[in-house]
């Protein structure tokens, strides 16, 4: 399980995370909501060990081990994968190369390339296309597939539905729910409130670098006043 405790992160001298605290249990889908600029992406980057930002106080624990301060590849090798904001695919690599780079086609355990292409038929059809030649939906799928091929126990997803057509958002939501059923933990940062609420079992809401609300999705749906207060959305 992932435990983020009182995390303080800075961009240069700018104090962005003011003691963020949250948990993601094994096999749990947790949504992290909040308006733009509230520190969601900063929190995801801090968990993954990506700099900037720099973590100056607090800690991130993963299955009891402190992982804050480790390098991103060391954190990734502990089975934490990321679907970053904006996807950040490798534009000169083909779909297949995105996957073979991270796992030899000879490995037959966990998420193999065949299993990925079976789960995402469209990616299989486009296997020889480069990252820069894919449509928005395909890019979103490949970003998820690139995380899955690492056989993670936890995926940090930073706005995976960003820029997608409604039908693709729906499809992605189904994928996330299916993945959750396989025992994979997901920390889902989402602007798309309803999509996030359908997939997640618990919700955290961030405001100005702090977690200001935490609770179950059911409770939030029953009382949308919190959503109205922090997200400015009318339930």
């Amino acid at each position: 399980m992932l435990e983020v405790k009182d995390l303080h992160s800075y961009y240069g001298d700018a104090h962005v995370l003011h003691g963020a605290t949250l948990e993601v249990n094994k096999g749990e889908i947790v949504a992290l909501l909040g308006r733009n600029g509230m520190g969601k992406t900063t929190l995801i980057r801090s968990i993954m060990g990506l700099t900037p930002p720099t973590v100056r106080a607090g800690e991130v624990k993963w299955n009891g081990e402190t992982i804050s301060g480790l390098k991103p590849h060391e954190i990734a090798s502990r089975r934490i994968a990321i679907v970053p904001q904006g996807r950040r695919l490798f534009s000169s690599l083909t779909v297949t190369e995105h996957l073979t780079m991270l796992k030899s086609p000879r490995v037959k355990e966990g998420w193999t390339i065949e299993r990925i292409f079976d789960a995402f038929k469209r990616l299989g059809e486009r296997r020889n296309h480069r990252g820069s030649q894919l449509s928005g939906g395909e890019r979103g799928m490949l970003a998820v597939a690139r995380a899955l091929i690492q056989d993670p126990d936890l995926i940090l997803m930073d706005e995976p539905s960003e820029g997608l057509a409604p039908v693709m958002v729906q499809r992605l939501e189904e994928v996330i729910i299916d993945l959750g059923k396989t025992g994979l933990g997901i920390l889902l940062v989402e602007q798309n409130l309803y999509s996030a609420l359908d997939a997640a079992s618990r919700v955290y809401i961030m405001e100005t670098g702090k977690v200001v609300h935490s609770g179950t999705t059911a409770a939030l749906k029953a009382d949308m006043s919190v959503v109205e207060k922090f997200l400015g959305v009318h339930g």
Partner: peptide, 24 residues
């Protein structure tokens, strides 16, 4: 080769290569 693909990926986005578990 995998090394070559990693180099090309690194030219595109070195930080993401590292976030995918490769020691850049």
């Amino acid at each position: 080769t995998r090394l070559g693909v990693m180099i090309r990926a690194g030219v595109d986005d070195a930080e993401m290569v590292e976030a995918c578990g490769i020691n850049i």
